[in-house]
């Protein structure tokens, strides 16, 4: 029976050291975790992780798309390829939206300028590419949050004045477009959506100059869009046929030919009846 109390004593001591070891271990672990977390938060780039976590799936999808459809000409990491495509650093998602939604990108072949084509990428793919460029291309013009008719200002008259001052030189006073040098041209604005007009002004696609928000305010841009919408898509067409929309030349020619022919016809008819 003598061993019994000693046994219980050693048992007790052993339990005590075990508890101490456990507590110390927990403390050490906690300290290590805390310092690791602090170190991580000190060294990790805060913003990027937050953004990547937010829509990382979309960005990953965009990256995949970029590698498949864009990287041949714009480079593996948006740096651009000489004589093929410009760098996409700083172009912003507005440029991505304009180029892809008008079907200009992906390009079919290298030529004087990219042509408007039916949209190749789906809306979802475009959103993914925009997210990818936003995540990796640095600061750049953003596509406006509003869309459709919300982008039409309420003063198309002022928009018309601004259009003639800034845009009409190349796009013609009523948005019919016109020739530039060496096979390039300013396209007609028929069938171009409000978002596309807005992002085109913001980003200056291809040879079009850029019209930043400090040069033409968002309100002024919206008025310009209202004007464009009021003269394109058959809206400026009270006679039934715009005959090219180039103004007095084609109109005068048609009036002359048709009018003279009608007068000759009527004269002949009157003569025949007399």
């Amino acid at each position: 029976m003598t061993t019994a109390p000693a046994k219980t004593a050693t048992k007790r001591a052993r339990a005590r050291t075990k508890l101490r070891r456990r507590v110390a271990g927990l403390l050490a672990l906690g300290f290590a975790l805390l310092s690791a977390g602090l170190l991580f938060s000190a060294f990790a780039p805060q913003a990027q992780t937050a953004q990547a976590q937010q829509d990382s799936a979309l960005v990953r999808q965009g990256e995949q798309l970029y590698k498949n459809t864009c990287s041949t000409c714009h480079g593996k990491s948006l740096e651009g390829v000489k004589d093929r495509g410009p760098t996409l650093v700083g172009v912003g998602d507005a440029a991505v939206y304009f180029q892809t939604s008008t079907g200009r990108m992906p390009m079919a072949r290298q030529e004087a300028q990219a042509h408007r084509k039916p949209q190749k990428l789906s809306d979802e793919d475009i959103a993914a590419l925009m997210a990818y460029i936003n995540a990796n291309g640095g600061e750049g013009p953003k596509k406006p949050a509003e869309s459709g008719e919300a982008l039409r200002g309420d003063n198309p008259a002022r928009g018309g004045e601004l259009f003639r001052l800034n845009c009409g030189n190349c796009h013609n006073a009523s948005g019919r477009g016109g020739a530039l040098s060496s096979g390039k041209f300013a396209p007609t604005l028929d069938g171009v959506s409000e978002e596309q007009i807005y992002t085109a002004m913001l980003t200056g696609p291809q040879n079009m100059p850029k019209f930043g928000e400090r040069q033409l305010t968002p309100d002024e841009k919206k008025d310009i869009i209202a004007y464009v919408k009021s003269v394109t898509d058959g809206n400026n067409n009270p006679g039934g046929n715009p005959i090219g929309g180039f103004g007095p030349v084609s109109e005068g020619l048609i009036a002359f030919i048709v009018g003279i022919a009608a007068l000759v016809g009527v004269t002949l008819w009157i003569g025949a009846k007399a």
Binding site: R158, G204, P209, K210, G212, R214, Q215
Partner: peptide, 20 residues
């Protein structure tokens, strides 16, 4: 020229984007 002949807007260098 803002389209309004009576409005006076002076231009700053940062108003114009590169390529503008």
């Amino acid at each position: 020229h803002t389209g309004n002949f009576h409005e006076i807007v002076k231009v700053r260098p940062e108003d114009i984007e590169p390529g503008g």
